[in-house]
Design a protein around this nucleic acid. Structure first.
Length: 431
RNA sequence: GUGGCCGUAGUUCAAUGGUAGAGCCCCAGAUUGUGAUUCUGGUUGUUGCGGGUUCGAGUCCCGUCGGUCACCCCA
């Protein structure tokens, strides 16, 4: 038996009803914040031409692709991120929309990595982008959205912060030091790892580029090196009352190769300082992917379901908020029909159909069952009421399952009466 | 890709190298028109897989697959 049993592939998840409900909580929260900010939802394919990712994503990502040849001989890849798809889409359809585009997508991505805590080979990502706006106001709008997303999950000031940096500042730095263009990716990589690598290693790496660790650290430490874009973003967010979440940190560079300007990360401020979301400006990606046919400055960020879910679980007030939501949304139905008299099943089915047609969520026993079993099932379904159909038809009884209070009702106008009843809070709960 | 730990019933876990067990879950009954609790009964295993050592392996050894955690990197 064990040898024949199938299980999910490594790094892939099954979503049992409880897990699916938790995922819906994330999705609904993401959607509601995006709508509050005037973003509209779009969707792109899970499978794309491999070249789309090899062209500009760069770095580790290209070695983590779920890549294969399809039956038509095409080199295809399950998307490791959605940004290149968006850039492709934007280049193709940009004339159909007034700029800027404020678009978001919630979708699954795939990366062939070793699964561990907070990371699988498949994950869902909330992607938010503003296409066709070069000014820092677009970056500020996205950072504000990221902050409001965290607040919508129940996180509080002090739970997280947004670390902002600007690759342009580093490009200027590199130019002033006469660093050749082809060394810049390596240089950014070194800066990115400054916090993790040992100082000796950083010193050695920088030395090979003719730079010293001290001058790089000095550059990071001096707030005056922040770009004018950063200053504008700070002013923007302060006007929104969100200035306290911001923190300038020039050591942030981000791994993806296509970023060109402002980059930022939402960080867990408590324990591990994990990045729960990240993004930045990629003004040349659309142009690159369209071979120059279309040039649209773009900025965006992504938040993954694994990391945000972990952070929620570890943060009591956020976890409590999610539990409350799950509790409110867990019920399989509002009303459970109890057949006290099996011979009334045809009449019960008529009632069931009427209620469902009226938009009331209800369930019932598919076969003969003892009364106590039916009440047990009613309880487990999470229904608020049990509607008892018995020999006294057309009279019925409605029992509130939480208070155990019963009241009589009648099949005439039952759907209307129940709809009204469901609007009211549960019966005589006092006592 | 590198390393640590771990694979026993649906699940959580026991079992000094000597007859594979318990809690929970699930199902049924006690209860012929009312949910909790309680009680009773019941189903489930080639101990991940393959080899080796041994009179004897869930236990020790090797391999393999899977899980998990850390590194790398990232969501």
């Amino acid at each position: 038996m064990a040898a024949l049993r199938f299980q999910a592939l490594p790094g892939f998840r099954d979503f049992l009803p409880k897990d699916a409900a938790a995922r819906n909580y994330l999705f609904e929260t993401w959607r509601s914040v995006a709508r509050r900010y005037g973003f509209v939802e779009y969707e792109t394919p899970l499978l794309e031409d491999t070249a789309l990712y090899l062209k500009k994503s760069g770095g580790e990502l290209s070695s983590q692709l779920f890549r294969f040849e399809d039956q038509g001989g095409r080199d295809v890849t399950l998307r490791p991120e959605v940004t290149p798809s968006l850039a492709r889409l934007a280049a193709q359809h940009q004339r159909d929309f007034p700029k800027p585009l404020k678009w978001f997508e919630i979708g699954q991505c795939f990366r062939y990595e070793k699964p561990q805590k907070g990371r699988g080979r498949e994950f869902f990502q909330f992607n938010v982008d503003i296409v066709g706006e070069a000014g820092p106001a677009a970056d500020a709008e996205l950072i504000a959205l990221a902050i409001d997303t965290m607040l919508a999950f129940g996180f509080q000031p002090g739970d997280f912060l947004v670390r902002v940096s600007d690759r342009q500042a580093w490009l200027d730095f590199a130019t002033r030091r006469g660093l050749p263009d082809d060394k810049i990716p390596d240089f950014l990589q070194i800066v990115d790892k400054l916090e993790r690598d040992k100082p000796e290693i950083s010193t050695e790496k920088l030395g090979s580029l003719g730079l010293s660790l001290d001058e790089v650290r000095a550059f990071i430490a001096n707030p005056a090196n922040a770009s004018t874009a950063y200053d504008a973003i700070r002013a923007d967010l302060e006007a929104r009352g969100m200035g306290d979440y911001l923190s300038l940190d020039l050591s942030i560079v981000r791994g993806l190769a296509y970023y060109t300007g402002i980059v930022f990360e939402v960080f867990d401020a408590r324990k591990s300082m994990r990045a729960v979301a990240g993004g930045g400006r990629y003004d040349t990606l659309v142009s690159t992917l369209s071979d120059g046919a279309c040039d649209l400055p773009t900025t965006g960020f992504a938040m993954g379901d694994y990391v945000i879910r972990n952070l929620i679980d570890e943060t009591p007030h956020a976890a409590f908020q999610m539990e409350s939501w799950l509790h409110r949304n867990a019920a399989a139905c509002d009303i459970y029909l109890v057949l006290a008299d099996e011979s009334k099943r045809p009449e019960a089915l008529q009632i069931l159909a009427d209620l469902r047609n009226a938009g009331i969520s209800c369930d019932f026993p598919l076969g003969p069952a003892k009364i106590n079993k039916q009440f047990q099932n009613a309880e487990r379904s999470g229904a608020r009421f049990a509607l008892i159909v018995g020999s006294e038809l057309p009279e019925l009884k409605l029992k509130a399952l939480s208070s155990r209070a019963e009241e009589r009702c009648h099949v005439l106008n039952l759907a209307d009466w129940l709809t009204d009843r469901l609007q009211q809070p549960d019966g005589p709960l006092l006592a």
